[in-house]
């Protein structure tokens, strides 16, 4: 076991773990943040998506040893910027989730997409979001919600929009 310091959702935490432990289990079981989900453990489904320094990564493929103490880790519980907020609101507006299990990952990916590309086309959405599986089949609504969120952000419904990470 090794000692690690992590910055998750702006909180510093100390963790003792094996170096190869995926961040997925560190976040869920050491940090106690259960919003990040296990779906496949192989980087195939996106349920475990988090932000590492603003980039969407699959936490099941990210060993704790690869994360710096200064790296900013953000999970679904920690998203707080205006983009995040708009995405979550639109997700409610469009009633996207069914079982909801994949949705933390979908939202983390959607937020990262909108930060990188504030005006995504259907093709942009399809290619960026193709890594996130939804077995309940909420895809039609995800696509619509991302477009709506992009519009709301653009129309300045949310004046404080800025790229924070």
């Amino acid at each position: 076991m090794k000692k690690y310091t992590l910055t998750i959702n702006n909180h510093k935490i100390q963790v003792e773990a094996e170096p190869d432990t995926p961040m997925l289990w560190v976040i869920r079981d050491y940090a106690g943040l259960k919003g990040t989900k296990f779906g496949c453990g192989m980087g195939l489904c996106g349920a475990c998506t988090i932000h590492l320094n603003g980039q969407a990564v699959r936490s099941c493929q990210t060993p704790i040893s690869s994360v710096q103490a200064t790296s900013k880790i953000t999970t679904i519980e920690g998203i707080a910027s205006s983009v995040d907020h708009v995405v979550q609101q639109v997700w409610i507006e469009e009633q996207v989730p069914q079982c909801g299990y994949c949705q933390s990952g979908q939202i983390m990916s959607a937020v990262a997409l909108l930060k990188a590309n504030p005006n995504p086309s259907d093709e942009d959405i399809d290619s960026y979001m193709a890594g996130n599986i939804c077995r309940c089949g909420t895809y039609v609504r995800i696509r619509k919600a991302i477009h709506t969120a992009a519009q709301e952000l653009k129309s300045g419904k949310n004046k404080t929009v800025k790229s924070t990470r």
Partner: peptide
Amino acid sequence: DIPLKVAGKAVFGI
């Protein structure tokens, strides 16, 4: 249930 599910707060069995 949806506000819980977009905030990562819905409690699943796991």
